[in-house]
Design a protein around this nucleic acid. Structure first.
Length: 109
DNA sequence: CGAATGACCAAGC
DNA sequence: GGCTTGGCCATTC
């Protein structure tokens, strides 16, 4: 497991209950702003170790677009945490987006 | 080492 | 934000 993978897992675990973060944001926190897609890759492999359902794409849409059953699961998981998810798998980023504190960011290094 | 792949992103229509 | 295009980057083959 690479440092990148390790960092991604660490960041995703920081996302609190009832909040969501985008792949791009996670990548940014990890230190590689353009590696958003790798974040998705990591989550796909470690779906049992992290709250992957709290990670969505930049438009607030559930990312598992090519896996319908998984998308439905993600929707139900988010709703069970109090996150509003429309029938089109859309989420209100302005309300549910996770804003990491400076202290949290420092703890990543 | 080079080529392909992907739970993505930003920009342009 | 709907769809297409080009570009990133880690991982795999």
């Amino acid at each position: 497991m690479s440092v990148f993978t390790d960092q991604v897992l660490k960041v995703v675990r920081l996302v609190p209950y009832g909040k969501v973060a985008s792949y791009g944001q996670v990548a940014l926190m990890v230190g590689v702003p353009r590696a958003a897609i790798q974040v998705g890759w990591v989550l796909h492999q470690h779906g049992d170790d992290v709250p992957w359902w709290r990670v969505i794409n930049s438009k607030g849409r559930i990312s598992t677009s090519c896996m319908e059953h998984t998308a439905a699961l993600q929707k139900s998981l988010l709703e069970s945490e109090g996150v509003e998810v429309s029938e089109d798998m859309m989420i209100d980023m302005g309300v549910f987006r996770y804003a990491p504190s400076q202290e949290v960011l420092d703890s990543l290094n």
